[in-house]
Simulated scan of single mutants.
Amino acid sequence: MVSEILVPMDDSEHAEKALEYAIDNFPEAEISVLHVIGVPSSMMGEATTLALEDDAEEAVTKRTDPVFKRAQEIAKKRNREVTTLTGIGHPARNIIDRAEEYDTIVIGAHGSDWKRASRRFLVGNVADAVSKRAPIPVIVVR
């Protein structure tokens, strides 16, 4: 039985569909939504720029709030609650490092980075990396 699910989310439509899938198909499971800040880039990664902020905690909240608000809206429409988690660093690594705390991962096929070819080249496909390396089942939602 699946009792705890990790749903990585960014601001993409595929991530929203993954959360909807998890809620609709696992009505008894506790769902944690993870948003990871800090995609590597050719210059400085987003996580590095957090260290340069006057108030790093406020900067993290500013970056995570839109994603978490959307996750809460999706859950509320379905009379469910979700827990929110923030990660800093590489998205795939963050997801894989947390995987053993859950029964399964439900992830969108493409995140918001797929629209940015140069970023996708550097980062790779997070869903692909997670599905290949996670020690638990992974459901990829289109």
Rank of each mutant, 00 (worst) to 15 (best):
A47T: 13
D65M: 08
A75S: 05
A71S: 06
T104R: 04
A99I: 09
D54L: 09
R98V: 07
P91I: 10
R116N: 15
L85T: 02
E101Y: 09
L19E: 05
D97W: 06
L85F: 03
L52N: 08
K17H: 13
K115E: 13
L52Y: 15
S42G: 08
A15S: 15
T64P: 03
D54V: 09
E46R: 10
A71N: 05
D11P: 11
I74K: 00
E20H: 10
P91D: 00
L34I: 11
K115N: 14
I37C: 05
A56V: 14
G108D: 03
T84E: 05
A18F: 12
A18R: 03
M44T: 14
H35F: 11
R63L: 15
D10L: 04
F121G: 05
D97A: 13
P40T: 12
A29F: 12
T84A: 01
P8C: 07
V82M: 02
V67K: 04
T86M: 01
P40C: 09
G108A: 05
E57P: 06
V7T: 04
E13G: 12
H14Y: 14
D113P: 06
R93K: 12
V60N: 05
R98N: 07
E100P: 04
L122F: 15
G89L: 02
F121I: 14
S42H: 11
D113H: 15
K77V: 10
A15E: 01
I74A: 00
A71M: 03
A117S: 11
I5S: 01
K77G: 10
E20M: 09
R70C: 12
V39Q: 06
F26P: 06
A127I: 13
T61R: 08
L34N: 00
H110D: 12
S41R: 13
A71Y: 05
I37F: 07
D24G: 12
V33P: 02
L52M: 15
R80E: 07
R116I: 15
V60D: 01
T104L: 10
P8Y: 05
E28T: 14
H90C: 02
A15F: 09
L6Y: 03
R80M: 08
N25Y: 13
E73A: 07
E73K: 08
A29L: 07
L122P: 04
V123P: 04
H14R: 11
S32Y: 13
S32P: 08
F68H: 00
P91T: 13
A56N: 05
N25F: 15
I31G: 03
L19D: 01
W114S: 12
L34R: 01
A117Y: 09
E57C: 07
A56E: 13
D113L: 14
H110M: 11
H35V: 10
I96T: 01
K17C: 08
A15Q: 06
T64F: 01
A109R: 14
H35W: 07
R80H: 09
I107Q: 00
S12T: 13
H14G: 11
A117T: 15
L85W: 02
R93S: 11
I74P: 03
S42M: 12
R120M: 13
